[in-house]
Design a protein around this nucleic acid. Structure first.
Lengths: 181, 181
DNA sequence: AGGAGTCTGTAGCGCTTGCTACACGGAAAC
DNA sequence: GTTTCCGTGTAGCAAGCGCTACAGACTCCT
């Protein structure tokens, strides 16, 4: 029945595509509207304001990404740290790492300065990822599993950052080195 | 003799301060000019355009930061991985980590999308940091020292990112965990 | 048939952005 | 003493931003 909600939903999907392709800097209302096949006027009819629109769209992107990870390493499976890192890195790499990486850095940069809705959403994403990591990690006995998951997550995020600034080769070599040690 | 170069130099210092305080999003010509005690008109007299201005200012920030690191761990000293990580993290934390962290994430985000001058400068910074890490790292025998340095750098960058998105506690715990393992 | 509420296009407001045109005072060179 | 260049203020341009006012079309209820 509700036409508006349907179109809103469709817009979210198309805007998520656009966001992944262009990143936050390319996410003006007019550009997003063009991507969604609508007018900026209509976007602001579907959503209260840009913040609400961005929150919904970023949430959608996060959902997609967590689906990629779940598909790569299914619930119930547990791996030791180095293997898990390698597996996650491999999964991201084969699902076209780049777009998500760029968007995530944009988001993190905004979050760092406390910008909303970036701060809230980035927090949620990193918490979810942390929990996911802990649920997939075969913990080494004798130290805190949460801290181990945190360390693994940090390393992965750092690899992402290295790749983003054009040092993907360094990141690849690091993954290998960590796999041996 | 050269009045212009003197003022240009002074402007760089003050703009570096401003950049650390406000990050890239707060770096409009008018805002930078106010911080430097000049007019935007004059900034564009000292520098060809905003790109040149930003390149000079970001370079200055990087210079300051590497001075902090050199002071914390002097040339010639070598530490094993976990200790080095702890030392670097401690040095950054005690020198007011926050401003540099934010700026670095802004820069990395821009670099990821290929924006100039961010891409070039971020590349230079990460290369310098990589080299610095390798020069301070007591390498474990049997695997590539460069890759070990890369892995350590990745972890550190990831910790920075975790702290930026408001999970500094997770980062601290991870540093501890890595210190034990 | 008429009024009410739901959609949507047009047009534009007020603001910020990087950058520029122009004019003018002073100092230096000849 | 004139010319030439350096340094600087004023004022403004074109483009982009998020957002809104307004009006018309369409659908539904009575």
């Amino acid at each position: 029945m509700n036409v508006r909600d349907d179109r809103r939903e469709a817009a979210i999907e198309k805007m998520a595509d656009h966001l992944l392709k262009e990143g936050l800097p390319g996410a003006s209302l007019r550009a997003l509207a063009a991507a969604a096949g609508a007018s900026d006027r209509m976007l602001l009819y579907y959503f209260a304001d840009k913040d609400e629109l961005m929150a919904a769209t970023l949430e959608r992107v996060a959902l997609r990404q967590s689906a990629v990870l779940d598909a790569a390493i299914q619930p119930g499976v547990r791996l030791p740290g180095p293997s898990l890192l390698k597996a996650v890195w491999g999964a991201m790499a084969s699902s076209d790492l780049q777009p998500f990486m760029h968007l995530w850095l944009d988001l993190a940069a905004g979050a760092g300065r406390g910008v909303e809705p970036h701060r809230t959403i980035a927090g949620r994403i990193v918490d979810a990822f942390l929990q996911w990591t802990q649920s997939r990690l075969e913990p080494e006995p004798g130290s805190d599993p949460a801290a181990q998951a945190g360390a693994l997550l940090a390393t992965f995020e750092g690899l992402l950052l290295l790749a983003a600034v054009g040092r993907r080769d360094v990141a690849e070599a690091a993954v290998e080195a960590l796999g041996e040690g």
